[in-house]
Amino acid sequence: MKNLFLTLVFVFATAFSFAGSDSYETKLETAMFNDCIGVTLSCGVSYDICNFTGTTSQLVNLVIGQNNNVCGTKIMPVE
């Protein structure tokens, strides 16, 4: 019982220590991207993105942009 109590205290303390600066989620995600993650585009092309230091949203925007350019339909040529 004592162990359970100590574990809960540790979990809450850790969670609250992340509050107030960047979100807990962002910190975890940023840490995760220090290595590599596998990406598969909509046309089946697969590769890794490594050492990405931004947030999840920045990574998602990056991959979606790469997907549009590699797999998307013919793009209207403007300038």
Binding site: S42, I64, G65, N67, N68, G72, T73, K74, I75, M76, V78
Partner: peptide, 8 residues
């Protein structure tokens, strides 16, 4: 995901 013809 929606596929834009242009990101312009």
């Amino acid at each position: 995901l929606p596929q834009p013809n242009s990101n312009n």
